[in-house]
Each structure stands twice: as structure tokens, then as C-alpha cells.
């Protein structure tokens, strides 16, 4: 009831795609008591940027600046990982993002049909000590440590060739 579909230019809404991995409509949206966001789109960096803008605009109403920032950053890191790793830079991959607000939380579910997580396990994302030499500083690899810092109740499963990631983001108010 509270689920809404959004379609932007170049994006495919749930109702229009014939993708075989699409779930029956009744399973797509989690029970929601607040505003929701649901979108399917091609996994590439420019589309990810547009989706983040839409998701934040849709869910951030009434959120504090910090909470909106948390949502945008956590979602960006998850979606970037899907583009770079699950789909390996291929352009044909679809991603489904389902978000809804519930009490003091934003509940997130992200589905893709790219490669499975190695060993079917989420990366630990441990923050490494800073190296003493500037030359040895990492130029990436912060994605999972950021996600783990920002999100709670992270869960991953692989089912029927798709990756399902769920997590919750706490709202400060």
C-alpha cells in the first residue's frame, strides 16, 4: 500500500521489466509503515548516482542532515560494490533497491544477480592501521568498513542466482 514505484529516464521500473529473476510482486516489498522507495535499474556508476539522488530525495524528507548522509553513503557503497564486483564492470546487470522507513530505522534490501560474494560471506571490512609511509596509503577498500560502521543487522544470502543484502540504518530522530 505504501510501496511506490519510481521510474527515471533510462531506468526500468519493476512493472516493466521481464527479467526472469524478478520475484512475484507480493514478495517484493517488505511490510512498511512509512514512506518507501523501490526501483530497479542498470548497474553503472552514473545510474547509481541518479538513484542515490532519488532515494535520498524520497526518503530524506524529515530526516536530519546526518541521517540523510548516512543513507546516501551506505547505499552508495553497497551499489558501488555491486557495479565493481558483483557485475565486474559488465553493463547488463540489474539492481533492485527497496527501502522503507519504520519507526527509528530505514530498512534496506538490495538484490542483484551478479557474482556471489566470495565464500558466500560478507567481507569483514576491517579498518587496517594506517601505514607509516604516504606511498603505502590505500586508495580504496573502505567500502565494507563504512557499510559495517553505518548499518546494523546486515544479512546476506544467495538464492536462485541472486544476491540478497538486507540491513537497517538507525535514525537519530
Amino acid at each position: 500500500m505504501s510501496r511506490r514505484l519510481f521510474t527515471a529516464p533510462g531506468m526500468i521500473s519493476d512493472g516493466e521489466t521481464g527479467s526472469p529473476r524478478r520475484e512475484p510482486a507480493g514478495r517484493v516489498s517488505a511490510p512498511s509503515t512509512g514512506e518507501g522507495f523501490h526501483l530497479c535499474f542498470e548497474a553503472d556508476p552514473c545510474t547509481v548516482r541518479r538513484v542515490l539522488g532519488q532515494a535520498v530525495a524520497e526518503l530524506a524528507r524529515g530526516l536530519s542532515r546526518d541521517d540523510a548522509g548516512t543513507l546516501e553513503l551506505a547505499l552508495a557503497e553497497v551499489l558501488n560494490n555491486i557495479v565493481e564486483h558483483a557485475y565486474d564492470g559488465r553493463t547488463s546487470g540489474q539492481v533492485e533497491v527497496c527501502l522503507h522507513r519504520e519507526a527509528g530505522w530505514i530498512c534496506c534490501r538490495i538484490v542483484d544477480s551478479g557474482h556471489a560474494m566470495p565464500a558466500l560471506t560478507l567481507p569483514e571490512g576491517r579498518m587496517r592501521p594506517l601505514p607509516p609511509r604516504l606511498d603505502d596509503l590505500p586508495e580504496g577498500g573502505w567500502g565494507w568498513s563504512l557499510i559495517r560502521t553505518l548499518a546494523t543487522d546486515l544479512a546476506y544470502r544467495r538464492e536462485d542466482g541472486s544476491n540478497y543484502l538486507t540491513f537497517r540504518l538507525p535514525l537519530s530522530r
Binding site: A76, L134, D135, P138, E139, G140
Partner: peptide, 20 residues
């Protein structure tokens, strides 16, 4: 108003090629 880990990595990379 927004930097993700890829953007941060790019800034670190710039810092490294400007050094020493």
C-alpha cells in the same frame, strides 16, 4: 556535499602523486 570511498580514493591518489 558528497564523497564516497571511490572519491576518497581518488583524493588520496592525488595526494600521493603530488608527494613529496
Amino acid at each position: 556535499i558528497f564523497v564516497d570511498s571511490s572519491g576518497l580514493g581518488a583524493i588520496v591518489s592525488v595526494m600521493k602523486f603530488l608527494a613529496p
